[in-house]
Each structure stands twice: as structure tokens, then as C-alpha cells.
């Protein structure tokens, strides 16, 4: 795969469909010197969904719903990576340090495509869900069974590295399949309105801002590690991206012609 194809792949789907061929041509002709501008342009367009061309009806809302789940999945992986932690938890037993999760869960609830109450649509939803989640469910089950079987106890060296690698591969695979599920059910589901998506993004951004603050607090007041610094930075970037995108979708901020279709 060429660099031009890879960089073009970073653009939102609607922009790729409209301008993908020409972006690839420009990147291929200009070479490495245009890569920073091309990548920054893709990032700017992701932060301004109201600028995406309306190539297909409802495409922007579908892509945003998937992006919203991708943000939630990355947040879950980051949270897992920072555990055990006393400042950033996801545990009802520690409400003060788990409060950040509440707006995120509300946001996910608002941004979730809803099933259409028709037999055919529900049957399609069930089939797609089973097909998409069967593999990650099997992988998670195998991992839990292996962990509880007692076959490997106190692993060291290469075995430990391989097991940790497998663990993260299964979690990442599950996160990717969950995002795929949202993309696959979207055509047969009732997609959230732009107003709901805007509120969902802003709520998730608020939750992420709280999580970033708590993570930063831990970095400042305890001995910082490379891992905690990287997690704080990643949370901060996710916060900025979701709040910027949510702000861009606010009603009245953009002319009617540019509202996501």
C-alpha cells in the first residue's frame, strides 16, 4: 500500500468519496514534503463534521456514531492500561473517582443507533450482531478459560510477554468488532439526530475532561511514569477532539447548507 493511499485513508469517508482520487494524486506528486499538510488537513476535517460533503444521505451521522464508539473503545483500553489506579477508577464503590464515567455513559446512550421495532429489522440486527460478535466472544471466552484453567501459573519470560500480548490483542479485537457492529447495524437502525450526536459528543468530552484532570492530578502528585504520562496525553487529545467535533455540530453555529445529512 502506497503512502498516498494510506494518507488518503485518513480522511473522513465522505471527503474520500468526493476527493479521494485527487488527494491521492496530489500526495503522490508532491511527495513527502506535503505529508504534514495532508495529515493535518485530515485531522481538521475530522474535527469539523459539518464541513463533510453530503455524498450519501445520513452518512455523516453514521460515521459520527461509529467514531463515538471508537472514542469510547479507546477510552476503555486506556482505562484498562492505567489500572490499578486510585485516582481514575470505574467502580461504583469509589464514586468520587468514578464520576467521570457518568457523562461518558450518558453520551454513549445518546449516540447509540436504536433498533427499529419491525420484525425484519430486528431479525437483521440479531443476525448481524451474532455474526460480528461471535469471534470476539469466542476469543474472550478462550482467554477466561485459559486464565482459570491453571495450565499456566506465574508465567515468566517469553510466555509472560506472549500472554500479555494475547490479552491486549483480544481486547483490541473486541473493541474493533464493537465499532464494526455499529457500522453494520447503522443502515437498518434509527440513527441519532445531529442534535443528539452533538450532545453525545459534548457529554463524552466532558467525561474525558474529568478523566484527564484526574489522571493529571495523579501525574502531578505521585511519581509520574512514561505510561501514566502517555495515558494522560491520550485522554487529553480525545477530550479536545470530541469537544471540538461536538462544538462544530451545535445548532445555529453553521449555516443550514452545512448541517450533517
Amino acid at each position: 500500500m502506497s503512502a498516498a493511499t494510506l494518507i488518503t485513508g485518513l480522511y473522513p469517508p465522505a471527503v474520500r468519496q468526493r476527493w479521494g482520487t485527487e488527494i491521492s494524486r496530489e500526495v503522490a506528486e508532491a511527495g513527502i514534503r506535503c505529508w504534514p499538510d495532508a495529515v493535518a488537513g485530515a485531522a481538521r476535517l475530522w474535527l469539523h463534521p459539518s464541513d463533510w460533503p453530503g455524498t450519501l444521505t445520513g452518512q455523516t451521522r453514521r460515521v459520527l456514531a461509529v467514531a463515538l464508539f471508537a472514542v469510547a473503545a479507546v477510552t476503555a483500553l486506556l482505562l484498562r492500561a492505567t489500572q490499578p489506579s486510585t485516582t481514575l477508577t470505574a467502580d461504583p464503590g469509589h464514586p468520587a473517582t468514578s464520576l467521570w464515567l457518568l457523562p461518558i455513559l450518558l453520551g454513549i446512550g445518546l449516540g447509540t443507533p436504536l433498533p427499529v421495532p419491525r420484525r425484519q429489522a430486528l431479525a437483521h440486527l440479531t443476525t448481524v450482531s451474532v455474526r460480528t460478535l461471535a469471534a470476539p466472544a469466542a476469543a474472550l471466552s478462550a482467554m477466561v478459560l485459559a486464565a482459570n484453567s491453571g495450565v499456566v501459573e506465574q508465567p515468566t519470560g517469553f510466555v509472560r510477554v506472549a500472554l500479555v500480548g494475547c490479552y491486549w490483542a483480544v481486547l483490541t479485537f473486541t473493541a474493533l468488532r464493537l465499532c464494526s457492529l455499529v457500522a453494520r447495524v447503522a443502515p437498518a437502525a434509527a440513527m441519532p439526530t445531529t442534535r443528539r450526536l452533538c450532545a453525545a459528543l459534548l457529554l463524552i468530552g466532558a467525561g474525558l475532561a474529568l478523566a484527564t484532570g484526574q489522571s493529571l492530578f495523579a501525574v502531578v502528585w505521585t511519581a509520574p511514569t512514561a505510561g501514566s504520562l502517555a495515558a494522560t496525553l491520550a485522554l487529553g487529545l480525545l477530550t479536545t477532539a470530541t469537544i471540538r467535533a461536538g462544538h462544530d455540530l451545535r445548532p445555529g453555529r453553521t449555516p443550514a447548507a452545512s448541517r450533517p445529512r
Binding site: W19, I23, A30, P36, A38, A40, G41, R44, D51
Partner: peptide, 10 residues
Amino acid sequence: GPGSLYGALS
């Protein structure tokens, strides 16, 4: 640059 051009067009 491609990012500036296609961002501006969009």
C-alpha cells in the same frame, strides 16, 4: 498542500 486545498473546498 492537499490538506489545505481539499479542506478549503469542503
